[in-house]
């Protein structure tokens, strides 16, 4: 009985929400293009308007999204790696078919992630998407080579220190304009020709930093889960 009441309530609420939206928003007035698109491009030097918004005009939102991601990664590592049973799982090797095909795929995936990150202000892509694609490439790399080898190599490269340093660097970039008497989150680097790779250096720099941050954070989460489970 209780279950049925809850079901009815859920369906009714959802249908009410759907009804409201279907009747009110099914024909939005989308004919008007954004009038200030050209202004935004000339100010930031990034033809991709989405990049220009989330890494320049609305950098404040992006800053806190990066911090939310950092906190979530810290939480996963804290709860998963501090437990006694986490180190017990012995790694199980992948099958040969998977190893061989992952070996072919992982350089391409890593390269695609790099491309999406670096050209994020010119074409579809950006730091967030590129970082996730590169993290999938790293996962394929783990499948073909083995978890502990990759972990040792990345730790040798100081990936954990980088993980803590990157959010601080991003926050420093956001606060740095205050030192030069400019408002916070304003663009310090020169704006070049729109459509060129180095046409908007600040968005390029932030894209690369965000991509690295997402890549390292995703790797930390994946490593914690792989360690717990023993296989991917």
């Amino acid at each position: 009985m209780k279950r049925r009441v809850r079901t009815a309530l859920a369906v009714a609420l959802s249908l009410a929400a759907s009804g409201i939206v279907i009747f009110n928003l099914s024909a939005p007035d989308v004919a008007a293009p954004p009038h200030d698109a050209d202004l935004l491009v000339s100010e930031t030097g990034a033809p991709n308007l989405v990049s220009a918004i989330y890494l320049d005009a609305r950098l404040y939102d992006t800053l806190y999204e990066i911090l939310v991601f950092t906190v979530a990664v810290i939480g996963v590592r804290f709860y998963l790696l501090r437990r006694e049973s986490s180190a017990r799982a012995t790694p199980i090797p992948e099958s040969h078919v998977l190893q061989a095909s992952a070996q072919i795929l992982y350089p391409l995936t890593l390269l695609l992630g790099l491309y999406l990150t670096v050209f994020g202000h010119l074409s579809p892509g950006g730091g967030f998407g590129g970082g996730v694609v590169a993290a999938s490439g790293l996962l394929l790399c783990v499948m073909s080579i083995g978890v502990q080898t990759i972990y040792r190599r990345l730790s040798g490269a100081g990936i954990e220190r980088l993980e803590w340093a990157l959010p601080m660097v991003i926050v420093a970039i956001c606060v740095a304009p205050l030192l030069f008497g400019r408002p916070m989150l304003s663009n310090l680097l020169p704006v070049g020709r729109a459509g060129h790779v180095f046409g908007s250096s600040s968005i390029l720099l932030l894209n690369i930093l965000v991509g690295l941050k997402v890549l390292i954070g995703s790797w930390m989460v994946l490593y914690a889960f792989i360690c717990h489970r023993g296989e991917i």
Binding site: Y54, E65, F69, V132, G217
Partner: peptide, 11 residues
């Protein structure tokens, strides 16, 4: 607005 939601979703 929703671009980084995908990564946050994953985390």
């Amino acid at each position: 607005l929703v671009l980084s939601a995908i990564v946050i979703n994953f985390a």
